[in-house]
Design a protein around this nucleic acid. Structure first.
Length: 809
RNA sequence: GCUCGGGUGGUGGAAUGGUAGACACGAGGGACUUAAAAUCCCUUGGUAGCAAUACUGUGCGGGUUCGAGUCCCGCCCCGAGCACCA
């Protein structure tokens, strides 16, 4: 007999990988129905130059095990892999090493593909796509035009997140909460720039509602809800004294309008500029504005102390009571949310704090129900934000918050000085990047600044070849002679292509559609393919994509739905996250700590099957878990045992009821675990049965075959090899998933434990069909139980069927 | 600050309100070996005991229950997300 070690050393795993490829075993089935199709999606990888890491291996192993399991259950599976191949790292690498990003990217992809194949991942490679290929980015550009046609694209000059090191604009979700660049850790500054924006905010409500109908982790849905940040309130107009000028504010508490004693404007907002001529202390105000613009986001976040400046000589009028109130600027008001202006009152912590600091009068308008609280509120000792009864509030007096809100909104609308309004935290998506390695934005501009979209039939706008991509802060495409001459030739003198490229999230927001029909030249995917395969049945990806990729993909899908291309509007029916695999030192793997593990090294040393299984065995898929070299050896030991069991498979039909029953129990448990992605416990079950089989002198062929089929999704190479050693000519991957026999899962005898006052005092082995009365009677006869009862009569005896007898004394 | 997760042996982790610690690693002991590796067998939450067994034990303090790692209330700690959103 060949040993498992010899099998691995003789490239046995590669042999089976080639076999699968040659037999096209994992080619996507053509004939599928709505009920038997199963679309499994591992998240799109960025093909970095440093190759596959253990996190990739985790995603692919998990999806692959699930895919192979579903196939054996009779599902028609589509599983594909592609490349998120545009983006900054490739470009930065290109700059540093003077290689064209296309060359380094293609090389990285070849490497990734080989590494993934060496893990034995069962994907249909005919479906492979790469975002940097023109037959792909043609359709990325097409999506931009689709949004443009539907009025979802606009151009705006706005303060944007600027990374000095990457020399480009970043979207909000590409900036860390501390204000650093997600890619290079440089501190982000704010810079005014003209950018293309996509109106995701128009879909804010739909993006919220859609969350209710998809099976995603609750936390993930919550994070998206928070990111969208819907709040209901009202907009209110404040007149400026002795002027036609008006300031519009947004508030979620219009009911406190009578208590509005001052107004605060965002320092970088438009209102201050508009009032410039009337402001008597402009020098002071200007200084404050400048100081604010220099402050980084980080400083503004950390510096919680509220400071501001009063605009002298300007007063606003509270429309509710016609009181004249002062106007301030302060950086706790953000220009980018609402109207960049707020009214301030006694029932908001920030307003309260600010007023105390600058001795601005406050007017309490809500009386809490609690008398003690009320005293403190009345004396302005604390700020009260809760519900209560209004007073000092004219026609709102006596009402509680909700009624007061409704009433004042009605009043504002009648007087035409305000209205009910919904505000979102979600911002529109800035998609312009001043970089080379991305899809060119399909827009044209002439010398007068006139803009028009590239006609759809002219797509793709190819990236030029003659580009010096050294970053200057300006778009490299500006420097391509060929690129701009191409536009002039086609669209007449003076017309130029937009020199910016698209954010790579534009590329990754629709790749799951392209897998369905990757070579289609007349559509991003055919209607038939879309109908057949979408939506995705199972999507596995990292939690870092919640407010970026996942939100944008949902947005793309909703626009396609509205445009009539598809008949569903949520792309991912079931979504789960994988956890991080940490270094052996429990820290995040990083070159800096020298704690990285290269999956290919592990495959070479222990085999792909060990690698796949180990990553699934260390803990629940969604948890972060540390790598442990000894754990890898443990899994390898397990596979060695499975291999050696073949020696015990005998010809003679020896009755082996114990093992058979245990095997069926394992089938039951492992099947249940696989349904819920409980790979770690499913593997534990298999280890258990293998340990039991090992204790036997001989093993029935049928039972061993059951074990091999159970093992197939996890360790497909070994399963194939052993299957063929048993004499089979076909692949074990196309065998059906074993069904357990209900009769074999049932026990004839059970152990029932006996408790006295909740403490374990003994157990008994009884027949499975024992009656309640018999169980109780027998329990009371157990020696140790008799001892503990000390002759006392039990008060109560509880019987839990097949589990325990609980005696109360 | 707010919002989620989570806290179980030496370690990673198992446990529909019903035998806490499955499975694995590590450790200790033994077998094989000239020796080591590999492999196999035994032990392994803590305390006491030769043992049967007893006590104790799932971050802390209460509660509900015949019975709580699991449910409820109040804390402590760790991790993540959001962060002046009016």
């Amino acid at each position: 007999m060949k040993t498992y070690k010899e099998f691995l050393e003789n490239k046995g795993e590669a042999k089976w990988q080639k076999y699968w490829e040659k037999k096209k075993l994992f080619k996507t089935p053509e004939e599928v129905t709505k009920t038997n199709k199963y679309y499994i999606l591992p998240q799109l990888p960025y093909p970095s130059g440093s190759g596959l890491h253990v996190g990739h291996a985790e995603v692919y192993s998990a999806c692959d095990i699930y895919a192979r399991y579903q196939r054996m259950k009779g599902k028609k599976v589509l599983q594909a892999i592609g490349w998120d191949s545009f983006g900054l790292p490739a470009e930065n690498y290109a700059i540093k090493n003077n290689v064209h990003p296309k060359i380094s990217t293609d090389k990285a992809i070849d490497n990734f593909r080989e590494q993934i194949k060496s893990l034995g991942i069962s994907v249909d490679w005919d479906k492979e796509v790469g975002a940097h290929n023109s037959d792909y980015y043609k359709w990325t550009q097409w999506f931009f035009l689709l949004f443009y046609k539907r009025g979802l694209v606009y151009r705006k000059k706005q303060a944007v997140n600027w990374c000095k090191s990457c020399k480009t604009v970043l979207a909000n979700d590409q900036v860390t909460s501390e204000g650093y660049c997600e890619r290079c850790d440089t501190q982000i500054i704010q810079k005014d720039m003209e950018q293309w924006y996509i109106k995701v905010t128009e879909y804010a409500d739909r993006l919220l509602e859609g969350l209710d109908k998809i099976d995603w982790p609750e936390e993930t849905k919550k994070r998206q809800r928070d990111w969208i940040g819907r709040s209901e309130g009202a907009s209110v107009e404040f007149k400026i004294l002795n002027s036609e000028f008006k300031i519009e504010v947004f508030t979620t508490r219009p009911d406190t309008l009578f208590g509005a004693t001052y107004i605060v404007l965002a320092p970088e907002g438009q209102y201050v500029q508009d009032l410039k001529d009337r402001i008597q202390n402009w020098d002071e105000v200007k200084k404050y504005i400048e100081a604010t613009s220099k402050k980084t986001e980080l400083a503004r976040q950390i510096d919680k102390e509220k400071i501001g400046v009063e605009l002298k000589g300007v007063k606003a009028i509270n429309p509710a009571n016609n009181e004249e109130i002062p106007i301030y600027i302060a950086d706790f008001v953000l220009a980018s949310y609402g109207t960049g202006a707020v009214f301030a009152d006694a029932h908001d912590e920030r307003d309260f704090e600010f007023a105390k600091k600058y001795n601005i009068p406050l007017l309490v308008t809500i009386k809490p129900d609690d008398e003690n609280e009320w005293k403190k509120v009345q004396n302005l000792e604390v700020c009260y934000e809760g519900d209560g009864v209004h007073f000092n509030s004219g026609f709102l007096d006596g009402l509680r918050i909700n009624e007061a809100k409704t009433k004042i909104i009605k009043w504002l609308e009648e007087k035409n000085i305000g209205k009910g309004k919904v505000q979102y935290k979600l911002r529109d998506w800035s998609v312009s990047r001043q970089r080379f390695w991305g899809a060119p934005i399909p827009m044209l501009q002439n010398e007068e600044g006139e803009m028009k979209p590239v006609p759809e039939e002219d797509l793709p706008i190819l990236l030029p070849e003659d580009v010096d991509f050294k970053p200057t802060g300006e778009s490299p495409l500006n420097y391509s002679k060929e690129f701009q001459e191409r536009a002039e030739k086609k669209y007449g003198k003076g017309w130029k292509y937009e020199p910016d490229t698209l954010d790579t999230f534009m590329c990754s927001s629709w790749y799951f559609f392209r897998y369905l029909d990757p070579k289609n030249d007349s559509a991003f995917a055919s209607p038939e393919a879309l109908k057949k395969w979408m939506p995705v049945d199972f999507y596995l990806g990292g939690p870092e994509h919640v407010n970026g990729h996942l939100l944008y993909s949902r947005f793309f899908t909703k626009v396609l739905f509205d445009a009539g291309y598809i008949d569903f509007d949520e792309p991912f029916k079931v979504h789960r996250h994988q956890g991080l695999i940490l270094g052996p030192d429990n820290r995040k793997m990083s070159k800096r700590w020298g704690n990285t593990i290269n999956p290919t090294d592990v495959v070479n040393q222990y085999g792909a099957d060990t690698m796949r299984m180990y990553e699934m065995f260390i803990g629940p898929l969604e948890d972060d878990k540390p790598w442990n070299e000894n754990g890898v050896k443990g899994v390898r030991r397990f596979l060695d045992k499975v291999w050696k069991l073949q020696e015990k498979v005998g010809d003679e039909k020896k009755e082996d009821e114990r093992i058979e029953k245990l095997t069926h129990k394992v089938i039951k448990k492992a099947s249940e675990d696989l349904e819920t992605l409980g790979f770690n416990t499913a593997i534990a079950e298999m280890m258990k049965i293998v340990n039991e089989m090992n204790k036997e002198e001989s093993l029935q062929l049928a039972t061993y075959s059951l074990l091999l089929r159970l093992l197939t999704p996890f360790a497909p190479h070994m399963a194939e090899e052993l299957w063929s050693i048993l004499g089979h000519k076909d692949s074990i991957c196309i065998q059906s998933w074993p069904e357990y026999d209900e009769n074999l899962v049932k026990d004839d005898e059970l152990t029932i434990v006996v408790q006295i006052n909740g403490k374990l005092r003994g157990d008994m082995t009884v027949s499975a069909d024992i009656s309640e009365d018999d169980a109780k009677k027998q329990a009371l006869e157990i020696e140790n139980v008799v001892k503990w009862l000390e002759g006392k009569e039990p008060k109560k005896v509880i019987y839990v069927k097949g589990k325990l007898v609980s005696i109360v004394v």
